[in-house]
Design a protein around this nucleic acid. Sequence first.
DNA 1: GCTTCCAACAATGTATACATTGTGGCATAT
DNA 2: ATATGCCACAATGTATACATTGTTGGAAGC
Lengths: 242, 242
Amino acid sequence: MSEARVSQVHRALLGVRDLIVSGDLTAGTRLHEVALSEKLGISRTPLRSALAQLRQEGLVETISSGGYAVRRFSRDDVIDAIELRGVLEGTAARLAAERGVDASRLAELRWLLSEIDGAMRGSEAEMDFDRYVELNAAFHEMLWGLASETIYREIERISRLPFASPSAFLNKQSGVPAFRRSLYGAQAQHRAIIDAIGRREGTRAEAIAREHARLARLNLEYVLDEAPGLIPQVPALSLVVS
Amino acid sequence: MSEARVSQVHRALLGVRDLIVSGDLTAGTRLHEVALSEKLGISRTPLRSALAQLRQEGLVETISSGGYAVRRFSRDDVIDAIELRGVLEGTAARLAAERGVDASRLAELRWLLSEIDGAMRGSEAEMDFDRYVELNAAFHEMLWGLASETIYREIERISRLPFASPSAFLNKQSGVPAFRRSLYGAQAQHRAIIDAIGRREGTRAEAIAREHARLARLNLEYVLDEAPGLIPQVPALSLVVS
DNA sequence: GCTTCCAACAATGTATACATTGTGGCATAT
DNA sequence: ATATGCCACAATGTATACATTGTTGGAAGC
């Protein structure tokens, strides 16, 4: 799903997004186009195009007087984005169950599940965390596409908000034990979702997928309330102003 | 909610969108930037910005060789867009019920409902159809915003697809009796949604809102299967191929 | 000393010029 | 006659120049 294009717009998109997610540009900061274009080595035209796209994604907002600024997010904004992701993933799961899924695709999903099991083998400290993250992302992306292209697009869109994506709290540096422990329950939910889809149990698939996204909310609230020191380690969570 | 801005980008956005929705540009048509810029009297820079935004909205897609083309929609694409709108409106209603809504806002919604009743007074032929359309749009927009700004934004986004909006099959010229008759059931659902929210019955509110959107699907299937002559009267339905 | 107005500057919004890439047609060779 | 390769043109992608609007600092007047 990664675009091979190396257009200037694409470069600008990645560049600015990285500056925001990494916390280099803090919430509310005005984005001066000339300064940014010089910093990134990209002319203003593709840069502006990228900024407009980031506005659609929600990371950036327009200022009344013109131009763009890094958006501020409240805790509730993040919670709602996670909730929405859960609702949409639930819809993908429900529609997949109701409409039916090719056996080959279900088999591929089950293969992903067994691979995840493999990555989690051993103790919490021993597990192949990086591989889990990779496989988890692949699993979710495949789930998104089970129902239809339209559904996939919408979930992919909401997941562009860095803190709403299924991998938001699974960054590699994070050695938070509580996060790793939550993965066992998460994997059980993965299995249950696929099982429900296979049995054409739409309501069950939807409910579990919604609940699955709640893990991200739990992690969010844990970080914000009990371990604020971790905030810089979660993508774009530094943009959350209470 | 209407932007007062008269920027060239805004003009281009409205211009191109109108050309597409009106059926002037048919599905699959490549959008030549120079020709369009001359036709609209707008230079290429803001025009390209508008095209990029229309791509985000889904009306337009990029071509592999570069440039844009009017998107083709299948029947299933439209069905999924309507389904998604229903799911999201259901989420707005559920969250509103679960989280609670200010009495003043509920009162305003109930006032809208009574106004709709007023517009529907009399026989099918006598009713003030234009006013119904206007009030219906206002009701839905207000419902979208009951839960949170984030939810509102997402529903507003999906409703930008002309055939997914709550007003898609309520165009003024349409004198289709079947459509008008469906409005009585629709209004009953409006009441039930607000009643459920007032009683904090989230599940019920969500279910009814989802079912409410199904009316649009019924209308869609009626037009496509039984009255294809009406296709040009429904915004952007001419983009639906096969 | 504080406020207000004006002017200069700096930033965004727009237009246009340039570069690069894809496409189509024509000619030539098999 | 058909297929292939090359060349010319046209379209998009990018950079830059220009216009317009907002902002800030300083000076003058109260």
